[in-house]
């Protein structure tokens, strides 16, 4: 299962890539919104395997999570996006849900919960 992980914390990206890969997922990582959109464009152009889900941090320098989400939804409306947020902030989460996010999770998340959520999201998109 191909998953795109977007976060400005590179160390976190690397860890998640390693941990999720161990659990049988193919993880692509992007340190910012623009890189994520580029990767998405590339996967769409390839005609190869599409990302089954996106896990994305809300707060990022430059293009933030919500902005990136808006662009992603424009390119691939069916792609489920799970938002990660460092805040127990209902406002941002509700905003994200309004923009079409699949769900949101509060940092730090446990790996098992994250995998369950990704699988749920992937199933919902089928």
């Amino acid at each position: 299962m191909r998953v795109l992980f977007v976060d400005d914390e590179v160390e976190f990206l690397q860890l998640m890539e390693k941990r999720l890969s161990r659990r049988g997922m193919e993880v692509s990582t992007a340190p910012d919104g623009q890189s994520a959109l580029d990767l998405l464009d590339a996967s769409l152009a390839d005609g190869g395997e599409m990302f089954r889900a996106v896990v994305m941090d809300v707060r990022m320098p430059g293009m933030d999570g919500l902005e990136t989400l808006r662009h992603m939804k424009a390119k691939a409306p069916a792609l489920p996006v799970i938002l990660l947020t460092g805040h127990a902030c209902m406002g941002v989460a509700v905003q994200g849900m309004d923009l079409g996010a699949y769900d949101y999770m509060l940092k730090p998340v446990s790996i098992s919960e994250l995998i369950i959520k990704i699988e749920e999201a992937a199933r919902s998109a089928v």
Partner: peptide, 12 residues
């Protein structure tokens, strides 16, 4: 929260 998350992920 961010460092906490990294600590947790590293432990994981």
């Amino acid at each position: 929260n961010n460092p906490l998350m990294l600590i947790q992920e590293n432990a994981g």
